[in-house]
Design a protein around this nucleic acid. Structure first.
Lengths: 215, 215
DNA sequence: ATCCGTGAGTGAAATATTTCACATATCGAT
DNA sequence: ATCGATATGTGAAATATTTCACTCACGGAT
């Protein structure tokens, strides 16, 4: 029985956001044949303090051993469980332009917990085309297919003008998370997760720090 | 003469990171024909508090008018200046795979301050191919071309195994900012900016909040 | 001319996040 | 068996960030 009388504060979102980075670095080390690591080494690799890593992990349990550090395999398993990666998530790509094409062909998804099952486009001439082993579906069939297959996540790679309208359809059909590549802010109900990926926003953040005169 | 005796605290990076979002929303409104806005409206659009927007902007000056709000054109100009977007930055894409292809063809860059001048690939069979008006160059010529053209920013779309090695070459040649699409952490000198874009990391962040049982 | 609703800018307060530094545990070597 | 080096987990302290709530200004309406 869980302790329902004590207010359990939610774990800060900023902490959750770092867990995938820890996981990625740990898997990298694991693939190098390494068996253990320490908050110190991990911190050095990721450019952050060891204290932050220990504090972050301490929200979820005690995964390390004093004097020894962390057993990589064990910590990887734990992080996967925390992030709900011990299952495969079904992902649909919306929009089969250059970006949708690149996403469908990216083989970094499947080994990290995500299976791209569908790609949709409103351009009828693209329907039927094979992209990375996935065949382009007509946009008309979005709702039916997503509902039938129980697709949980969408990668939104449509023009900005259509992003909100498509989002509304996705939400209505039960998609739980959307990673939006269009340069526009989306409005969704609070139980739907949205992530943003606008390369220009990232570049504009960096230019603030650049020396305009150099080169 | 600037006030060199008073310690001027740096503006928080988290504030800088929000400016491109304000800019994007303002340009959107501007394109809708809107002339003025308020911290309230902007906040509603972006899902943040009006106080935060006012506080953020107050780091740089007084751009609004009490009782009236902000003049969109003026604020856009100011933000562009702050973010050093009143010039065109020269960008090279490294890696001409599906992703490099998508980046080279993305027409969202040029109107927002970034000009993709070059795309490089080590695969000699891709050299000469036209991607979004840019011709693929051999990787061997990376240093020479970047130095000659004064390219300031690189979009790194090479396999993870090669990302650090290519980064070292870019840094040595004088590139000031790198947006890394490879799923690996990069090590760079402190005067070089690095941004990361790993879709899987973003998805893994979102899955934490998803209901594993749904669908 | 005055009033009223709107809204910026801003110190102060409240929260959130990071870092410090220490008690404690482990392991290998002597 | 003891020592020393290493390294976790964690309260407390230090910082950073956000929100509050107020003063003051503007502009349209009466």
């Amino acid at each position: 029985m869980s302790n329902s009388l004590v207010a359990m504060p939610a774990i800060p979102d900023i902490v959750i956001g770092r867990l995938p980075l820890y996981l990625r670095a740990l898997i990298y080390m694991k693939n190098q044949g390494q068996l253990t690591t320490s908050s110190n080494e991990l911190g050095r690799r990721l450019g952050m303090s060891s204290a932050q890593i220990r504090k972050d992990l301490s929200h979820f349990g005690e995964f390390g051993k004093q004097g020894t550090g962390y057993h990589i395999n064990y910590l990887v398993d734990q992080l996967r469980q925390i992030l709900k990666l011990d299952q495969e998530w079904r992902v649909a790509v919306i929009g089969a332009g250059f970006l949708g094409h690149a996403l469908a062909n990216y083989n970094g998804f499947i080994h990290r917990g995500f299976h791209i099952s569908w790609i949709f486009d409103s351009d009828i001439t693209k329907v039927g085309e094979d992209m990375g082993g996935v065949v382009v579906q007509p946009m008309d069939e979005l709702e039916e297919t997503i509902a039938r297959e129980g697709t949980q996540i969408a990668l939104l790679a449509v023009p900005a003008e259509r992003a909100q309208a498509v989002t509304d359809r996705l939400v209505k059909t039960g998609v739980q998370a959307i990673l939006n590549y269009a340069p526009i802010n989306l409005t969704v109900p609070p139980d739907v997760q949205v992530g943003y990926s606008d390369p220009v926003v990232q570049l504009q953040h960096m230019t603030y720090y650049l020396d305009a005169s150099r080169s």
